[in-house]
Design a protein around this nucleic acid. Structure first.
Lengths: 111, 111
DNA sequence: TTGATTTATTGCAATATTACGATAAATGAA
DNA sequence: TTCATTTATCGTAATATTGCAATAAATCAA
């Protein structure tokens, strides 16, 4: 990503950026939406639901897991991936607060 | 970013990924938070509030604008940047719906 | 017009991301 | 143990991102 100067920003800002970055790809959005759509989280068939090769999907899953957006349990030969509720909640709170902040503002000056 | 196969995902998935990607950098998070924190949107001093050189900030602003997260009006020598309310609302709705979906789920099977 | 101020663009080096073939590792079944 | 199945890792090519110095462009003031 080039030489991101992360040390110059707050921990909270870096964490939120990392969380959003983990979701900032259509394949990872699709994975999360698929996990949200299935009722149980036995998810050995994620690869079949995505238009990407298995190593690519595995890499995206790894990124989502590293960011704490999903979690995975070994389940025999398969692996069971599920949404990590807390991560989604964090983003929901962040955008809800931001949306509230903007509504309470007086923006009539120029825009 | 390598060769993202965007054509294989839905328009909605690509749009959400693009919106999140635009925010997925601490500098851009910081810019949006700064714009949220000032009451009027006369914002010629964004550069002074960020630990980055002026061309770098300008580039981040361009990205945010291209994604529709902020809008800018020429205001004499300065430029007035403001939050685009609709973009934030989109993300808020997306995560609120996702969070609701996960709460209504039966995840007891394995995670 | 000239100069000062502010923002945008260009060009480039350093690094990160994406995708996938090949292959490895892990597990259960026979 | 051997085989089949599933997921992870490695290696690599193609492309994208980040940051900044240098410079351009735009606007206002004098």
């Amino acid at each position: 990503m080039g030489v991101s100067k992360t040390e110059n920003f707050s921990k909270r800002q870096n964490e939120m950026a990392a969380l959003l970055k983990a979701l900032a790809h259509p394949a990872r959005i699709a994975i999360v939406e698929y996990l949200l759509s299935v009722d149980t989280c036995i998810c050995g068939d994620i690869v079949d639901h995505l238009p990407l090769a298995q190593p690519t999907v595995s890499q995206h899953l790894k990124e989502l897991k590293a960011a704490g957006i999903i979690k995975g349990n070994v389940e025999g030969t398969a692996i069971c991936y599920c949404i990590e509720e807390k991560a989604l909640a964090k983003m929901q709170v962040y955008f809800t607060q931001s949306a509230e902040k903007i509504k309470s503002k007086n923006q009539s000056k120029c825009c």
